[in-house]
Nucleic acid binder design. Structure first.
Length: 488
RNA sequence: GGGACCAUAGGGUAGCUUGGUCGAUCCUUUGGGCUUUGGGAGCCUGAGACUCCGGUUCAAAUCCGGGUGGUCCCA
């Protein structure tokens, strides 16, 4: 893409996703079309989470003393917190923080709720807005001061293993969501210096943007007992002793929506996976002076037939020429359009065009076109996913020469390197390359290798020598595959 | 954290260097009317802007300072 930044700002406006002209830095207005897109993404997300989480809603404001309780955590956020200091003209005795995230709002309540191991696990989530006083350049839906769509889940467990397991469960949930959205992702364990403030460790999802940068689109944190100790979240175990609970939390934001737009969109406009498209089918009547009523009648018939199968349909009956409607259809990202004019009516057929390939398909209106359309939805979803993954995978390069890493990334790629895992060495790598280590993929790599070994003949020659690698920087034994990229 | 640049109708722009001829250009958008509809129609007739605050000056879209908002680059 020539100038991604320009394209991105443009499409947000033209496709009526948001209006970023709201006069406060980093805050925008969701427009009807964007709001619907957001709504259908949230619908899918909630369906996933409602299976074993409870949705709740906590207040926006957090008392100063609660926010300040967890030292490491507050340090990570203190420069970004908005404060409510006045009620009317009167200055408040206790300042109130506008949540930058809700740990400190929720956990004092968790302390009241958790009594016994029988209460555990507890799994909650909420979708709310949060506020962060970003000093860097803001970017609509990507770096904002009001995160309007912050999905945060918080779980409480009676032992370490369950918390660790929950991290894996959350990762699987996120995978499902991103697969549905056809968004490719790289999962890695964030370096210790880049984990969530207060967490034991952070697992992160990054996606690859058309401009060659990666964007963090989801994180899963194992909080261990840190917050439980700070907020006194204790339970009585089955031996009658009191123990601190183990916690996890994991979040998603507007960036998920940004990714759907940025990754699938093209020069003509949005391209949306059918599951979340505000309109799934647009019917465009081609009307001439004579015979307009018959055409409209047929369009209405198709509309109600599709609607009865649960498909979201719109008839574009605006008083304009069809060409303009075709362009609008392409801009909006609607997966399928159906053109119907007098010529088609005479033969009882219609022209169907799919947005992802712009391929024209003739459908016979006497046959079961509804199931045909469902099939095409499937194909579009698969096509978008394959295309996006292919693009991501093609842009990951392995390197064992630190000097070339910077250049490779400058060419818009992600580099995977072998790394020892040492903090000082890692920071040195970041300094030399002037880039970020996204994280390590030890687990995935190991799994892959095990699989490969399984399929090989049992007597292959010394796999140890093959798999032994040295750190790209310090040349000590490498324990991890680390990803290096230019990040947002 | 540091730096550069920018701000003119809903969107994109010309004008700014050298203050006056700006009653502000063009494209798009948009109200009304006629006509038209298989890829952004045409004609007629209307509508719509100098980011805010302060300064310099006889005179500011134009020069100066600040605020706000935006874009990009570097750490």
């Amino acid at each position: 893409m020539e100038d991604f930044s320009k394209w991105y700002h443009n499409i947000l406006e033209e496709a009526e996703i948001i209006d970023s002209r709201y006069p406060i830095k980093g805050m925008s207005v969701w427009l009807p079309h964007g709001f619907k897109l957001r709504k259908y993404i949230l619908k899918e997300l909630k369906e996933l989470f409602d299976k074993d989480h409870e949705e709740v809603l906590f207040p926006l404001l957090v008392p100063e003393d609660e926010l300040a309780k967890e030292g490491i955590h507050v340090k990570g956020f203190e420069d970004e917190v908005y404060w409510v200091t006045h009620g009317g003209q009167k200055e408040l005795n206790k300042k109130l923080a506008i949540r930058p995230t809700s740990e400190t709002a929720m956990y004092p309540m968790f302390s009241l709720w958790v009594r016994s191991h029988i209460d555990l696990p507890m799994k909650f989530y909420q979708v709310v807005n949060t506020f962060r006083y970003e000093t860097k350049h803001t970017r609509p839906l990507i770096r904002v001061r009001e995160i309007t769509t912050f999905k945060e889940a918080h779980t409480v467990h009676s032992n370490q293993e369950d918390a660790a397991k929950q991290v894996e469960i959350a990762i699987e949930l996120y995978k499902k969501l991103f697969d549905m959205l056809a968004i490719p992702y790289l999962i890695s364990k964030r370096p210790v210096w880049d984990k969530f403030p207060g967490a034991d460790y952070t697992m992160a999802f990054d996606t690859f943007f058309p401009d060659g940068k990666t964007l963090q689109i989801g994180t899963v944190h194992n909080l261990g007992q840190t917050f439980a100790k700070t907020f006194d979240i204790k339970f009585e175990n089955n031996e009658g002793n009191h123990e601190y609970a183990y916690q996890t939390c994991y979040g998603l934001s507007d960036r998920v929506i940004a990714s759907v737009i940025a990754i699938h969109g093209d020069e003509k406009g949005l391209v949306l996976p059918p599951a979340i498209a505000p309109d799934q089918v647009t019917i465009i009547p081609i009307i001439f002076k004579d015979g307009g009523e018959e055409v409209m009648a047929k369009c209405n018939e198709i509309e109600s037939s599709l609607q009865s199968s649960g498909i979201r349909v719109k008839i574009d009956d605006r008083d304009m020429r069809p060409g303009k409607k075709f362009y609008d259809f392409e801009l909006s990202g609607c997966p399928i359009r159906i053109e119907l004019g007098p010529r088609d009516l005479a033969e009882n057929k219609a022209i169907l065009v799919r947005r992802d390939t712009l391929e024209k398909i003739e459908i016979n209106l006497e046959e079961n076109y509804t199931s045909k359309i469902q099939e095409i939805f499937e194909e579009i979803a698969i096509n978008l996913k394959n295309k996006a993954w292919k693009h991501t995978e093609e842009n990951i390069t392995h390197s064992s020469n630190l000097d070339e890493v910077k250049d490779i990334v400058a060419n818009g790629k992600i580099v995977s390197v072998d790394w020892c895992g040492d903090e000082d060495c890692g920071k040195e790598i970041e300094e030399i390359t002037e880039l970020d280590i996204l994280g390590t993929q030890a687990e995935e790599g190991k799994e892959k290798k095990e699989k490969e070994l399984d399929t090989k003949e049992p007597n292959t020659e010394e796999p140890d020598a093959e798999t032994r690698t040295t750190c790209i920087n310090c040349k000590k034994e490498a324990k991890y595959k680390a990803l290096i990229a230019k990040t947002y």
